[in-house]
Design a protein around this nucleic acid. Structure first.
Lengths: 246, 246
DNA sequence: CTCGGCGATATTGTATACGCTTTCCCGCTA
DNA sequence: TAGCGGGAAAGCGTATACAATATCGCCGAG
């Protein structure tokens, strides 16, 4: 009776109901990946949470093979940590990693702003304003999960406008990791991005002022980083090496 | 009789010779990954080359399961392309991708130089000088494969000195992809990095002149990019849509 | 009462088997 | 002779089975 399987994407099993006989599993894998990824980004899966292969395969209705593939991809994206004989768990970023991620964002996202200001279109602005608006709404409604995801999506979308797919993908990954960092080091109730920062940024971009947008983005990211309380909470693995032999 | 299996790392099969019974397969996977990765970076596997799972599993003496895992990782690193029902092949970068990669390198590697100049130690300098020397030797000896790999390793190592592991990993990935780009768009006989560029760069870094190092790195990368002949050779998939329907 | 050893269980690692899709070759026909 | 269609083979996608190992609880001894 533990057959309760969530269908990630309403799909009537075109193969006739027999699971996994039709070859179009690629989309399904993609959907499952996004499903788990979203759950992590939205903090519905907290850092440290274990992700057992059996459980996931049961939930999503595919075998462990497919789950392992997805888990490995998530590991390469640094969202989950794969411990050799212990399985997968949601990554708990260290303080050093957090610093690295925000330094990287500082360099790449700020560096992208001039080009974004040059290329941004009216349609882009409209879509981004809508995202910013929905983010504020979610924040006001207390739906932190939605707000976090929208914030990451905003930054990712912005990066894509630069036209550089490689850097945009990197920024997206950094934003996902930032979401994890917020989950560990963020203060409850104080979300990363200030309410009107994104709107202000769009104003500079609309005016084509790339340099001002860059400076603002820099302050924006610094503000997020400053709002964190990074205190290297070493709950597990108390660093005996460092305490004694160190 | 087709049991000729290359042992990537001289390892006497501690399990007793029976393949894959001991659980320390992680190192072996790592070794196989590096083995394939190196072959691609050194152009012993040329872009477009097909990588059949059966053949690889036979060569390395592990089952297709492990090969698939490695292939998927290589795909995420953009070194191989995974076509849904057609298997894996060495990625053939498009002209757009090439531009993106070099723009990304321009932003990240140049941006890293000031911090590298601040942190570089005498030991680092010695190691890097040795790498540059070996690269020149290889180039002189006509061993392009070795030279290419050493050049990528030089840039990667340099990035690591910054202390930012995230950005360093990104740079390493970009360098690997650059190697592929050279294989497709590079002119034979003219390797990417000029002979003495790396030594000159080390000179600036030793002097702690981060800004000059940044400017030099920028010229260095521009020179490499300019040496390419990017001509969008669309041998396969002649873009009928674009030709007719416009 | 606490600590150490031991066995049962749960969970991952690896290999293999099977089905489906694609591809390639060969014969057929116009 | 060239184009087309069918069949056989090859290769990928998925699931399942088996083996090895880490974890956890239990029991006995000091």
């Amino acid at each position: 009776m533990n057959q309760r399987q969530v269908d990630t994407e309403r799909k009537p099993a075109p193969g006739g109901g027999r699971p996994g006989k039709n070859g179009d599993g690629a989309e399904r894998h993609e959907a499952i990946h996004r499903s788990i990824s979203d759950a992590i980004i939205e903090h519905r899966l907290k850092p440290g949470a274990r992700l057992r292969e059996d459980a996931l395969s049961e939930v999503f209705g595919i075998s462990r093979t497919g789950i392992r593939k997805i888990l490995q991809r998530l590991a390469l994206e640094q969202l989950v940590t794969l411990t050799p004989r212990r399985g997968a768990s949601v990554t708990r970023p260290t303080a050093d990693e957090a610093k690295d991620v925000f330094d990287a964002r500082q360099m790449v996202e700020c560096g992208l702003m001039p080009e974004v200001a040059r290329r941004i279109t009216a349609a882009d602005l409209e879509a981004l304003r809508d995202m910013a608006r929905r983010e504020r709404q979610a924040l006001k409604a207390g739906e932190q999960s939605t707000a976090i995801k929208l914030s990451a999506a905003f930054h990712g979308r912005l990066a894509h406008i630069s036209g550089n797919a490689t850097l945009a993908a990197f920024v997206e990954q950094l934003c996902s990791r930032s979401s994890l960092i917020l989950a560990v080091y963020g203060n409850a109730g104080h979300l990363g991005c200030e309410s009107h920062d994104h709107d202000d940024l769009l104003g500079y971009l609309e005016g084509g002022d790339g340099e001002r947008a860059r400076a603002f983005m820099s302050r924006h990211l610094k503000a997020i980083e400053a709002s964190l309380s990074i205190h290297e909470e070493e709950s597990e693995a108390p660093d005996l090496y460092e305490i004694f032999s160190g």
